[in-house]
Amino acid sequence: QDRILRHLTVGCTRLEFEYEIPYADAEKMLDELAEKPIIEKLRYVIPAGDGLKWEIDEFLGVNQGLVVAEIELPSEETCFIKPAWLGKEVSLDPRFFNSNLVSNPYSTWKK
């Protein structure tokens, strides 16, 4: 069985609902509901201390060249150490939302 992850965004907070679904249902959802092209990326997980972790997404395909780091926190008020390799904050920039990267891929942005 596969897992589906649904994001709901309010400010920097994203609600996530994660649960198992049958493989055939996942295929049907991707075929019929997902906007195309499908976002392609590699994900790397790096421990951040205190039970936290960084999820680093290296985008592929039409979004190749874009790398985004995300840390999941118990709340927006949780303090964490920002590593030296971390770039600018883009949480509230809609260009970086996966839903917008489908229609406005990174490869088309003016650099």
Rank of each mutant, 00 (worst) to 15 (best):
I39T: 03
V67M: 11
W54S: 05
W54D: 07
T108M: 04
E77G: 03
L5V: 13
G49T: 11
R6Q: 10
K53G: 13
L101T: 05
F17E: 13
I38Q: 04
D31I: 01
D2E: 12
L15Y: 15
P22V: 09
M29C: 08
N63G: 08
E32W: 02
R43K: 04
W109T: 04
W109D: 07
L92G: 04
T78G: 00
V67T: 15
P105Y: 09
P22D: 15
V62C: 08
I71L: 03
L86R: 01
I71G: 07
A48Y: 07
P47I: 07
N98M: 02
E72S: 10
Y44K: 13
K53W: 07
E70G: 13
L101C: 01
I38N: 04
L101P: 02
S107I: 09
E40Y: 00
D2C: 10
A34P: 00
L52K: 06
D50L: 06
N98G: 14
M29R: 01
T13N: 04
N104C: 10
E18T: 15
S75I: 03
E77T: 13
R95E: 05
E76C: 03
V102Y: 01
E55N: 14
A69C: 10
K53L: 13
D57P: 09
I21Q: 02
D31Q: 14
Y44E: 15
E77K: 12
F59C: 04
Q1Y: 09
W109P: 07
S75Y: 05
N63V: 04
L73H: 04
P22Y: 02
D50V: 06
Q64V: 07
I71T: 10
F97N: 06
R43Q: 12
F80Q: 01
K88R: 13
L92K: 12
L66S: 08
E32P: 00
E55K: 11
K36D: 01
P37D: 05
L15K: 13
P37A: 06
E70A: 10
T9P: 00
H7F: 12
A84G: 03
I71S: 08
D50Q: 15
A34R: 06
F80Y: 14
E18Y: 01
K82I: 15
S99M: 08
G51I: 10
L8P: 00
I4F: 09
K110E: 14
V90F: 05
E20L: 14
G87N: 04
E16C: 14
P22N: 12
R3E: 14
E58H: 13
L73S: 08
D25P: 00
R6Y: 09
L5H: 07
E18Q: 11
E70L: 01
E35A: 14
L52E: 13
D25L: 10
P83Y: 06
S99L: 06
E58G: 02
Q1H: 10
I38M: 07
D57L: 01
Y44N: 08
L60R: 13
N98A: 10
